[in-house]
Structures are given as structure tokens and as C-alpha cells.
């Protein structure tokens, strides 16, 4: 279980996380929604110890990580995989070397074994045979999927996804949704997913949480969440839900 207790974080005078409390259950997919710039990426970076809170506690199972020394933090991180919002691929390495990086660093597999794993991982994200390409030769969506392959390489227990599908076409978005569900089913991972995509969230989430003004204002299973009476959630959900029917109306009008 991941537990954030009373976490505060400011940048200069700007308060981003404000007495935030959140519990994320093991073996579930928790989707965090929130407006742009609300601090979702900052929240994710706190969970994996890339940022330290000004005050508050962050628990990964029974370990409090805000006070950990680099060595302890490193051990905790070996349980994690993370997909960055902009993928953060190493641009001096080929795609294959990027995905192989964690395997070379933390396993004793030989090169042949690593090659096989890498091509398997790339196949799963729908990018077979691009091992020799450089990250700069890829589209944004492709980079993201390579980042996903790299994050999953070591079969982590907990995976953090920062907007895994932003910038992908709808078909690919659906495929990545399936991949997240599949990974969870196969490896029983705990997943924290940041997303703006209501359809994807509804498809994959066991739990949804809304970040607003530095706090989690609602956390519930999909059914309860989408019917929540919290104004920001209503707005967030409705804007996306009604964009489709209204366009259908337009089409219908055209036919008349």
C-alpha cells in the first residue's frame, strides 16, 4: 500500500500540494485525475522519492521514504517502474539500449537473453523491430511506448504512469489501456496512472482520485466517482462526456 499523509510541497510561494492525504491499495489500478498544472506529476515524483515533501509522510508498505538515505531509496526504487510524462528516454542510446538499460544494470542476464527480452517488450507495446532507431527519430507517441517498455522491463511491483496515452491516437490509447490491464493481470502490479482521458480511466480504473487545489477531493471506485457531487469532478466528467453526443446531434441535423 502506498500512503501519503499530510503531504505539503511548495515551489517558492506557490503551494502545489496542500496537506494531501491519499491511500493507494496494492494490486489495484488507481487513476489520478486533475486539471493541467494541478500537481499530478509532482505527486507522482513524491511517491518515488524524486521530490521530497516540505512536510508529511510517504509510506510504501511499511517503509517511510521521505527520510531515507540514497542507498535505502535505491532499494525501494527497484520495486518501482515509472513512465515519465515526456518519456525521458536516454537520447544518446538506441531504443534497444534504452529498454535493455535496467536489465543490464540490475540483472545478470547475457546479451542474447537481454536481446530476446527487449524485442518481446517492444512487441508488447506495438513497436517490433525498432531496436536500432535513436529516440530522436521517433514520434512522441512512439517514445512514450518505448518508455513504457523500459518501465516494465524489470517486472516492477508498482508502476507509475504519467499520462501514458496523451498524444496517442484512439486505437493506440485503447491498446495501451489493454496493456496496462494485461500487465496488472499477469504480474499483479499496483498501478498509479495519471490521465486526462475519461474513457481510458473508466476502462482501467479500480479506483479514481481527483486532485484539486493541492488536495485529493474525492477517491472512489468508478461508479461512485463518476456520479460524484463534487463540482470539479462533475465539470471534468461532463465536459468529456457531452462532447460526443453534441457532435452526433450536429451530424443528425445535417442529415435533415
Amino acid at each position: 500500500m502506498i500512503r501519503l499523509v499530510d503531504v505539503e510541497k511548495s515551489f517558492g510561494t506557490q503551494k502545489v500540494l496542500n496537506h494531501l492525504n491519499l491511500e493507494i491499495s496494492n494490486g489495484k489500478i488507481t487513476v489520478i485525475l486533475g486539471r493541467s498544472g494541478e500537481g499530478k506529476s509532482v505527486l507522482l515524483k513524491h511517491i518515488i522519492g524524486l521530490m521530497r515533501p516540505d512536510s508529511g509522510e510517504i509510506w510504501i508498505d511499511d517503509q517511510e521514504i521521505t527520510g531515507l538515505k540514497p542507498r535505502g531509496l535505491k532499494e525501494v526504487r527497484k520495486r518501482f517502474g515509472m513512465l515519465f510524462q515526456e518519456a525521458a528516454l536516454f537520447d544518446s542510446m538506441t531504443v534497444g539500449d534504452n529498454v535493455a538499460f535496467p536489465l543490464r544494470e540490475h540483472t545478470r542476464k547475457d546479451e542474447a537473453g537481454i536481446d530476446k527480452l527487449v524485442s518481446g517488450l517492444l512487441r508488447e507495446v506495438g513497436l517490433e523491430g525498432i531496436e536500432e532507431k535513436m529516440p530522436s527519430q521517433l514520434s512522441g507517441g512512439m517514445r512514450k511506448r518505448v518508455g513504457l517498455a523500459r518501465a516494465l522491463a524489470l517486472n516492477p511491483e508498482i508502476v507509475l504512469f504519467d499520462e501514458p496515452t496523451t498524444g496517442l491516437d484512439p486505437v493506440m490509447t485503447d491498446a495501451i489501456g489493454d496493456l496496462i490491464l494485461e500487465t496488472k493481470r499477469k504480474f499483479d502490479i499496483t498501478a498509479v496512472v495519471i490521465s486526462h482521458d475519461i474513457a481510458l480511466s473508466a476502462k482501467i480504473a479500480d479506483e479514481l482520485a481527483m486532485l484539486h487545489e493541492g488536495k485529493i477531493v474525492e477517491k472512489a471506485p468508478p461508479g461512485a466517482f463518476f456520479n460524484s457531487s463534487v463540482p470539479v469532478i462533475k465539470k471534468f466528467v461532463n465536459v468529456q462526456k457531452f462532447s460526443l453526443p453534441s457532435r452526433d446531434d450536429e451530424l443528425a441535423n445535417h442529415h435533415d
Binding site: 515519465f84 515526456e86 525521458a88 528516454l89 536516454f90 537520447d91 523500459r150
Partner: peptide, 18 residues
Amino acid sequence: GTMRVTEQIDALSVLAVN
């Protein structure tokens, strides 16, 4: 510096490499 601003250094940390 480029690795820093594109979060590649964070990615190294996350992959448990100092």
C-alpha cells in the same frame, strides 16, 4: 544539462542508477 531538463537524470534515479 539537457539530460536534466528532459528528466533523463530523474529517469536514471528511478532506474536505481546513481
